[in-house]
């Protein structure tokens, strides 16, 4: 038999314990783990711009922002993701490694993650009751999709210039700020 390998269902506890010592980060969806890949210079520049623009606003409101290395748990999907940028405001949400009540999540799209970010993660992040906005930010052109919680579910607004409102942080953010010094954009 040309058996390459067998995979077994992994419990959330096994996954969380493994992540403390694993050499690469993994995301977890209902028994399966998926290794994360490195990112581009532009991807990273955009994340830095988000931190510079939004962290002071977040902290003024008693919230905190985190990037790339902190997990968000989606209980109803039995999933753990590492968002590119996340803002958490709930004082009761204090675990050292996992955020359960984010107010804002941002993913910077790349060719290998775009479909997952726009489909799977949009659905699963939408299941988090505290989440007010989910942003996907393109890195090959200026384009931000703002998914907001509506009565029926998440609805989207698309921006390619100008500025948009973030209800989660009660502020306006411009695309110039998000794409500052991003090469070619």
């Amino acid at each position: 038999m040309g058996v390459a390998a067998a995979r077994h269902w992994i419990s959330p506890q096994e996954y969380l314990a493994g992540e403390l010592t694993a050499e690469v980060k993994h995301e977890y969806v209902d028994g399966e783990v998926f290794a994360m890949v490195g990112a581009s210079r532009r991807h990273n520049r955009i994340i830095h711009n988000l931190i510079l623009r939004l962290d002071p606003t977040a902290r003024k409101r008693g919230c905190n922002s985190y990037s790339t290395d902190l997990k968000v748990r989606i209980t109803t999907a039995n999933a753990y993701y590492y968002p590119d940028f996340v803002v958490a405001c709930d004082k009761a949400d204090r675990d050292e490694y996992v955020i359960e009540a984010p107010a804002l999540i941002v993913e910077v799209l790349s060719p290998s993650t775009e479909a997952v970010d726009r489909r799977e993660k949009r659905v699963n992040y939408g299941k988090i009751p505290s989440l007010m906005e989910y942003l996907t930010v393109a890195q090959d052109r200026r384009r931000v999709e703002v998914w907001r919680r509506g009565d029926e579910g998440l609805r989207v607004e698309v921006y390619e210039s100008g500025a948009f409102r973030l209800n989660s942080l009660d502020c306006e953010v411009s695309l110039d700020e998000i794409y500052a010094d991003v090469e070619g954009l």
């Binding site: 040309g2 058996v3 390459a4 995979r7 269902w9």
Partner: peptide
């Protein structure tokens, strides 16, 4: 006991 996965490469049958 749930779902399991076996991965097959080039070569033998599955």
């Amino acid at each position: 006991k749930g779902w399991n996965c076996v991965m097959y490469g080039v070569g033998g049958p599955f």
